[in-house]
Write a protein that binds this DNA or RNA. Sequence first.
DNA 1: AGCACGCCGACT
DNA 2: GTCGGCGTGCTC
Length: 725
Amino acid sequence: MSSGDERDGGRGEGAPPEQLALIRESVRKAGVPRAKPRTWRGAALAKELPVARVLVDKGVLHLDRYFDYAVPEELDAEAQPGVRVRVRFGAGRGRVRDGRREGGGLIDGFLVERVAETDYSGPLAALAQVVSPEPVLSEELLGLARAVADRYAGSLADVLQLAVPPRSARAEQRPSPAPLPPPAAPEVGSWARYEHGGAFLEALAGGGVPRAVWNALPGSEWSEEIARAVGAALASGRGALVVVPDGRAVARVDAALTALLGEGRHAVLTADAGPEKRYREWLAVRRGAVRAVVGTRAAMFAPVRDLGLVVLWDDGDDSHSEPHAPQPHAREVLLLRAAQDKCGFLLGSWSCTVEAAQLVESGWARPLVASREQVRGAAPLVRTVGDGDLARDEAARAARLPTLAWQAVRDGLRQGPVLVQVPRRGYVPRMACANCRAPARCRNCSGPLEGQEAGAGGGFEGALRCGWCGQEEGAWHCAECGGFRLRAQVVGARRTAEELGRAFPAVPVRTSGREHVLDTVPGAPALVVSTPGAEPVAEGGYAAALLLDGWAMLGRPDLRAGEDALRRWIAAAALVRPQVAGGTVVVVAEPTLRPVQALVRWDPVGHAVRELSERAELGFPPVSRMAAVSGPPEGVAAFLGAVELPGEAEVLGPVPLPVTAVRGARRVGAPPVGERWERALIRVPPGRGAALAAALKAAQAARMARGGAGGEVAVRVRVDPPDIG
DNA sequence: AGCACGCCGACT
DNA sequence: GTCGGCGTGCTC
């Protein structure tokens, strides 16, 4: 028998395939019972539920559905839902040899379901192998992965690659420890500092599902507070999951959990643990041996049993954004999880993102905040130095450091360590007149002129280029004072830090940055120079902090520039002693700017609420939902022509993407160097995000299926693009 | 993606 | 007759 005959007899008689598909469809609709599986001759099948629905592990969108395979009798026992399998999957009809079908290669997949019948009209291939009997893909995890794939217009297989760690046979063989009985509900502890803090814990311990956006008071108790929330969820007999931005934060929560609950109640899931250890911990969670998890973003999918609480710390940190397709954000994944598992939700930060504010504004989550008196008692004094002050400040011109900042550092060093926050290297330096500090602007479009990375000596190298229109500037001179010397603000800040070190020779200088991140520093006087996000915790808190990266942070043409600046400032300032204990923060930035004012008043929530209402007015995310389509101009145009968008959708652009030829600033999804790409944004009103994602996915699938053959030029689709100018 | 099927022109 | 180039469509 020829396989061609079996597949679809009659193809040769001239009916076009789409017509055949229609006939098949109508036959199925007419109620013809699903077929008993037909297989290639020779295979003895499982007696019960002989069909396995398999998700093949290929991220391609047009394969984003289940394929039916026959379950051979000898695999019957092991071929349970959730196990990893290998199947033959390949093109064409394959060949039949020895009664077995050969053809495509063996590929990995997950067995999703066992059913009695198939609705596939052809003969089924048999499962080639059950990789291991460990059911790694539970119904809950599958549901979550599906929801994430739908939310982000991505494929299920891509999401599962993020959600299920690679197998390690050795890890599987080891038995997981026996689960401990639920602990007693923890004391309220420092949650008492927050209005409704006690009630939140009580609700969790009592089996409730409270949802809160928590604005944490400055200081280092946040990890302990998270541990108490986890303890409360465990006390109710449920599990808990904590996702934090980086390994340092994991270590803190890990320590707090151990201190509160002892050993053995929680697992730590981080990428840098090594594959075997990571899988072992993951398995302990899946098997229910451990009921609580703390980890970095990959842990957002951790298969915690009977989830009672999900916690996310500092959702504004961009490491919560997964770089792999379909690039889901931990906050959104945990929101989907909370909805799906009907569990408690805690989103905590020293600052507040617009998205967090929206959760409160919409009524989905309650605010968990401290009173103004509590805030005043915990926050340091914040003072500003703006351009006007600098211009008036003779000493600042000479010493390149405002008098106020100088005094704060000097006074602080008498009491303890002083933190100096400088911009990260690799930021595109903003250029300003070295003489009068006026920003250097493009003569074509008034955009900001940017330089290449400055050399170690602090000098400025390479061509100037406009950050907006990309035009090069060869012969700049200052429109304000006629000066022709430029300085990069980044360089200015670094040099200032160096000069501070020389000015206080008796004091040790310690640095913390990308290469070398310090975890803590002692409480003795020291200058601690750090880039944003790498600030060590000081024992007893810093006496003072100097925030020198105002221009670099606020100058970026990004929707989030203000929120981001405030978040980084607050994260540094939260490590400083309270004002009542002499803690002082000096920020070198214009005091009239909104994020600067929010820092002075220590009101990140108010800032986020105002940003949110502005975004709503302008139709920006997260109020509207957006997706970006980028690629070569022909590809973007073809995609926009083919996609069937929901009626309310609005297409912005396409516009040329800036040719980001800046070294070190490479981003996922950026065009290859030298290629001219365009990007269109698609916007839909609130509530239409799912429809938009579905439309994008369908269009992308159709194009991928045609592949290179149809001459389709590939485009990238990204839901929630992070960098909307 | 990969790969087999099949239609059509060229060669034994 | 039959070999193989490439255009098309499918993968249980």
